[in-house]
C-alpha cells in the first residue's frame, strides 16, 4: 500500500475536518440534548424532528439547499458577506457548517439518551446539597453520562469522515481545502485509477470497522456496572 501526496493531503484534511466538526458538535449538541432530555415543552417534538432530519434526507437535498442558502444570493450568504467573511461554499469552514448539520443527530441522540437515563433524582439530590446548575452539570451529568458523550463524539467523528454527498455538492474539490478522502476516492474511480481507489477504500473500511469495534467494546464494558445499579 502506498499513498500519493494528494491522498495524504486528503487524509489529513479529513482528519482536520472531522476533529473540528466533533468539537463544534459537542459544544452545540450538548445543550440541545440537555434541553431535549429534560423539557416537557410542546416544542420538543418539532425540535427533535429537525435535529433528526439529516438521518432521513438525501444528502443531495441538504447540499443543494446549503449551496443556495450559503451562496451570494442566499440568506446565509448575504449574512456572512455582511460580516465581511465572504461566502461559505468551497471553503473549509463551509464544510464544517454543513457537516455539523449533517452529523448533528449522531451526537445529540446518544447524549440525550444518556441524560434521560440518569433521571431527575441525582440532580435533585445535588440541588438539595446546594450545587449550582454548572456544578451539577460538571460533577453529576458529565461523569454519569460519560458513555453517551464518548459514543456521541466517536459517531460524530466517524460520520463526518464518511460524508460524501454534501461535500460533493458544496466542496468544489479544492486540494487541501475541500477535497476529503471520500471525494478523492470518487475521483480515482472516475479517472479509472482503480488501484489507487482500492488503497484508500480499504483504509476507510479498516478505519470504520475499528471505530465500531471500539465503540461496541466500550458499550459492553459500560453495560455491566450500569446494570448493577438498576
Amino acid at each position: 500500500m502506498s499513498f500519493s501526496e494528494a491522498d495524504l493531503a486528503a487524509l489529513w484534511l479529513t482528519l482536520r475536518l472531522a476533529s473540528s466538526v466533533t468539537f463544534v458538535l459537542l459544544l452545540l449538541g450538548t445543550p440541545i440534548a440537555w434541553w431535549l432530555a429534560r423539557t416537557n415543552s410542546w416544542w420538543k417534538g418539532p425540535v427533535a424532528s429537525v435535529v433528526a432530519l439529516p438521518l432521513v434526507l438525501p444528502p443531495t437535498v441538504l447540499g443543494f439547499y446549503l449551496l443556495m442558502l450559503m451562496g451570494p444570493q442566499g440568506v446565509i450568504g448575504q449574512f456572512t458577506q455582511s460580516l465581511g467573511l465572504g461566502t461559505l461554499p468551497f471553503t473549509f469552514w463551509g464544510l464544517v457548517v454543513a457537516s455539523v448539520l449533517y452529523s448533528m443527530p449522531f451526537v445529540v441522540q446518544p447524549i440525550q439518551n444518556a441524560i434521560e437515563a440518569l433521571g431527575n433524582r441525582p440532580l435533585e439530590v445535588a440541588a438539595t446539597l446546594r450545587a449550582g446548575p454548572w456544578d451539577r452539570f460538571f460533577s453529576i451529568v458529565l461523569p454519569l453520562a460519560r458513555p453517551g458523550f464518548i459514543t456521541a463524539a466517536v459517531l460524530g467523528f466517524a460520520h463526518t469522515v464518511g460524508e460524501f454527498g454534501v461535500v460533493l455538492m458544496i466542496g468544489g474539490n479544492i486540494p487541501g481545502e475541500t477535497r476529503v478522502v471520500s471525494v478523492q476516492i470518487y475521483d480515482h474511480v472516475e479517472a479509472l485509477d482503480y488501484g489507487q481507489a482500492h488503497t484508500l477504500s480499504l483504509l476507510m473500511i479498516a478505519f470504520s470497522f475499528l471505530v465500531l469495534l471500539g465503540l461496541y467494546g466500550l458499550q459492553r464494558k459500560q453495560a455491566s456496572p450500569m446494570g448493577k445499579e438498576h
Binding site: L67, G172, I174
Partner: peptide, 20 residues
C-alpha cells in the same frame, strides 16, 4: 481560485447559483 465540478453539470450548477 479554481473550484472543480465532478462533471460539467455540477460546474454549471456552481456558476448558475452564483457561487462561482
Amino acid at each position: 481560485k479554481w473550484v472543480q465540478g465532478e462533471n460539467i453539470a455540477q460546474t454549471y450548477q456552481f456558476v448558475s447559483t452564483g457561487n462561482a
